[in-house]
Design a protein around this nucleic acid. Structure first.
Lengths: 212, 212
DNA sequence: TAGATTGTTAATCGATTAACAATC
DNA sequence: TAGATTGTTAATCGATTAACAATC
């Protein structure tokens, strides 16, 4: 029976399931059991069945799960059949790399605008888009109604620009800023990516390893 | 009393403590109580005290914690006083952006070499370094002994290159590949960063928000 | 000394794992 | 039908929160 509230731990595992199921599909798998999937992913079969059953009954007793079907269901749960318009603030190294590197289409988004304050960068081509001046964000949003935004701007601008984007109708932030975005406007989402923190945990690991 | 095994949840919070304490220090804070820090970080005072006490007694009853001192202790725990030599594999968009964008020095690392298979990229300057040919990895490692590596290479090369780097003495991987690095060579660390998965959870959030 | 706040133990909460009846 | 594997309930484990004695 499907649950009403899904725990964060489950949500974080969904994209990974989706990814593994895609690989299995590409390798010609038609069916898979929770036991076999657990083995491949380094989880327990119990956990996998619990996770899926948060959303419905996708399997069949005695058979397992149909790979394509299950992947489709998880894709729908993740909203990957959608195509939410997204903009990027900050066309520096990282911003440009994300614009070029991320497969937005297969993750439920479409990148439709890139902005920077630096006149040197304005007009520069990044993939299919041309960097626009930050001053035109309002008019652009008024016309094109993006719903999500990537933040690749300096820490000190983050609070101000976020406020501004919320006023432009942005509802979801993918934040690469060194600023901990933790706003609680009702109905505004934040996904913080602290690459520095991630690297730091690696340093911790090496440090404690040495001491053993 | 300090614990022997530290849970992963605690470890993941350490870099964030370190970051917040840095901000506090920059803003002239000398002391802070667990209650006040909890408020700023969106945690509970209990949790903060529990976390710190995994490593020792850093506070003082009736006073709280000395900001600079506590930050220093956490920095030491994280190994930020070290300077582990690190190399980068893959000088594409993302690789170059990381090389330029990440503050390695303040996270316990030093980037000392960048490699790519593409002859077009070899010789290109990225920050202070020049991209080298992947074929010279072995000789470079033999001479310079890097301990950590960033993987920004295609998914299909990940398994092979990882193996190769382990043979060169690499002990820690910061993996941006779409490949789930989950090797269990004794004494080899992996930090997987799945940017696509992170964006996908944002899609999930928007998708479920809409349905309410 | 009185007030504040830690370090630490006990209680609660939530997530993972185990078990098993239901059923394909 | 027998074997396999799910969906789901119960048991366990771990992490978070609450409480409070110790002490600055």
């Amino acid at each position: 029976m499907s649950k009403t509230t899904i725990s964060n731990s489950v949500i974080r595992r969904l994209p990974r399931y989706y990814r593994f199921l895609g690989d299995l599909e590409a390798n010609g798998y038609v069916r898979i059991s929770s036991r076999e999937l657990a083995e491949k992913m380094g989880l327990t079969a119990s956990q996998i069945r619990q996770d899926f059953n948060c959303f419905g009954e996708f399997g069949q007793q005695g058979y397992g799960y149909n790979v394509t079907e299950l992947r489709g269901e998880i894709g729908k749960i993740l909203g990957l059949d959608k195509c939410t318009p997204m903009i990027l603030l900050g066309a520096g190294n990282l911003g440009r790399a994300l614009a070029a590197h991320i497969d937005f289409d297969n993750r439920g988004f479409k990148l439709i605008g890139i902005f920077d304050v630096d006149p040197e960068l304005v007009g520069r081509r990044v993939g299919e888009l041309e960097v626009m001046s930050s001053s035109s964000i309002e008019s652009f949003c008024h016309e094109n109604h993006p719903i999500a935004a990537i933040l690749c701007i300096p820490k000190d601008d983050a609070a101000k620009e976020t406020e501004r984007l919320i006023n432009c109708g942005i509802k979801a932030f993918w934040n690469f800023t060194h600023y901990d975005l933790r706003l609680s406007y009702r109905g505004v989402l934040v996904e913080n990516v602290h690459l520095g923190d991630s690297l730091t945990t690696l340093s911790y690991g090496l440090n404690t390893m040495d001491k053993k």
